[in-house]
């Protein structure tokens, strides 16, 4: 188990290294292959008052004149031990983990990201709780009442949920509940540390819109899994013991149908924590996704790099957790 964990952690690190290398290549190597010179890159840092001297200084200070491989090494090194940068006369220290400086605002990338993670995390966690509970419940009921009116209605709504994009349901939700029936005045992010009540109240519409999309998916997944497991021989054995149907369904049926749901959940959740791009745009939440979109628009490469790496980290991390959970869910899975 320990050996397995170490091996998996090592593999996860390697994966993140590959992701960082690919991202680095896309943003620093590809433009150069496309004809962008180092000077043009340096100009982006200098901004409006670019002159040959300042450009040359930036090139030297940020190491842009170095070979790409050295730059990549410096970038990775900065994440672990920090770095020192000089802009003009003043030098500034960038503590580890240092993801470099924004082209535009000349501020460190990492503190900006850490500011936005709680926003996206709040959105993702709340929505996940909602969609797992509702999705699994609807799926189980649908499977047990297969072919009934409830099943058909639930599956029709699920199809709607899967088909309707979040920029439709989200905007519809906003339109209905902030102007038609103004239960909410507006949707703003209030940090949970500031006012938990307000935090919760403001996130209800975003949570519901996001959960609608996902719970539809999970309902269908659970229904399919339950239909399969409820036909298994061990369900018959459980019934032959005289167990109550609720126990048969939850303890024996759902228990065995859980594995694929957990797998998908790990991926979905990891992906979402890395940035719920559309949802954050729709509700003007300043999360990771919105930050990434802004950075791409501005060609602010260090931010894009940072956000990509953090997002990749969440996905890799969540998948690792899922793999470890497997053993608890399905004892037939062995760590080897």
């Amino acid at each position: 188990m320990t050996a397995y964990l170490i091996r998996r952690l090592f593999a996860a690190m390697m994966l993140l290294l590959v992701v960082s290398a690919v991202t680095f290549a896309i943003f620093f190597l590809v433009p150069r292959l496309g004809g962008q010179s180092i000077d043009e890159l340096a100009v982006q840092y200098v901004g409006k008052d670019a002159n040959p001297d300042s450009v040359a200084a930036v090139k030297k200070n940020l190491g842009l004149d170095q070979p790409l491989i050295v730059q990549y090494y410096d970038f990775i090194k900065a994440i672990f031990v920090g770095a020192e940068y000089k802009f003009g006369p003043d030098a500034s220290k960038c503590d580890a983990p240092c993801f470099g400086y924004s082209f535009r605002s000349h501020i460190e990338v990492w503190p900006e990201i850490t500011q936005r993670i709680p926003v996206t995390l709040s959105l993702a966690v709340g929505a996940a709780v909602l969609w797992v509970i509702s999705g699994v419940t609807i799926g189980v009921v649908s499977a047990l009442k297969r072919g009934s009116f409830i099943d058909r209605l639930a599956m029709a709504v699920a199809l709607l949920g899967v088909s309707l994009p979040i920029f439709f349901t989200g905007l519809l939700g906003l339109a209905l509940f902030t102007s038609q029936w103004p239960i909410w005045e507006s949707v703003d992010y209030i940090p949970i540390t500031e006012d938990p009540g307000e935090w919760f109240w403001n996130l209800i519409i975003p949570w519901c819109s996001l959960a609608f999309l996902y719970s539809a998916l999970y309902a269908r997944l659970t229904r399919a899994g339950m239909l399969e497991t409820m036909g298994e021989d061990y369900i018959r054995t459980a019934r032959a013991k005289g167990l109550r149907e609720s126990k048969v369904v939850v303890k024996h049926g759902l228990r065995a149908a859980l594995t694929p749901i957990v797998t998908i959940f790990g991926m979905d959740f990891g992906l979402l924590v890395g940035g719920a791009i559309i949802t954050e745009q729709v509700f003007s939440l300043q999360g990771m996704g919105a930050y990434a979109v802004q950075a791409v628009k501005d060609s602010d490469l260090p931010i894009v790099m940072g956000v990509t790496l953090v997002a990749a980290f969440f996905i890799v991390f969540c998948n690792l957790i899922v793999d470890l959970l497997y053993a608890a869910i399905d004892p037939r899975v062995r760590y080897s």
């Binding site: 021989d233 061990y234 054995t237 032959a240 013991k241 005289g242 167990l243 399905d330 004892p331």
Partner: peptide, 19 residues
């Protein structure tokens, strides 16, 4: 079931819940 009447099934592997 289980108290007065009990049953043993054909395939012991599939008749036991694997998890």
């Amino acid at each position: 079931r289980g108290s007065q009447l009990a049953m043993i099934f054909q395939d012991p592997l599939s008749s036991l819940n694997p998890v």
